[in-house]
Amino acid sequence: MGEEPLVSTAAQILVLGIAGIALVLIVWLVRRGSLKERFALVWTAIGVGMVALALLRPVLDRLSENLGIESGTTTLFLIAILFLLGLVLHLSVIVSRLEEKVRDLAEAHALAEAAHQDGKSNKFEATVRPTDDG
């Protein structure tokens, strides 16, 4: 319809640049072994999605118009923020689960160590064995 594109070329280049750097970073982290492939896939998918949206201007523009958003960049940010919120929530769940696992492990370790020592010395058993307490 001859309108100006809603996403500027500069913004496109910026998004592409950031996505490229992110991709390199992800691959590097996986190779170093500091990022699980499972997370790498999630991040790569998000990155590819962002790049696709940035490149497919007409799609983004039409989406923006339908949503009543003036700038396509804003739509891009909106989608990005929603993705990130979802991911952060997911990570909070994982952290909660890990905390619970650490707790279980720490307790099991303390009890196992005590059982090991009791087996060697019988010290505690001996002091509490008498059944004379009321």
Binding site: R103, A106, E107, H109, A110, L111, E113, A114, F124
Partner: peptide, 13 residues
Amino acid sequence: RVLRLPVNIGVGG
């Protein structure tokens, strides 16, 4: 008798 938790996990733990 001392039970040693290897990390601090809180009173409840």
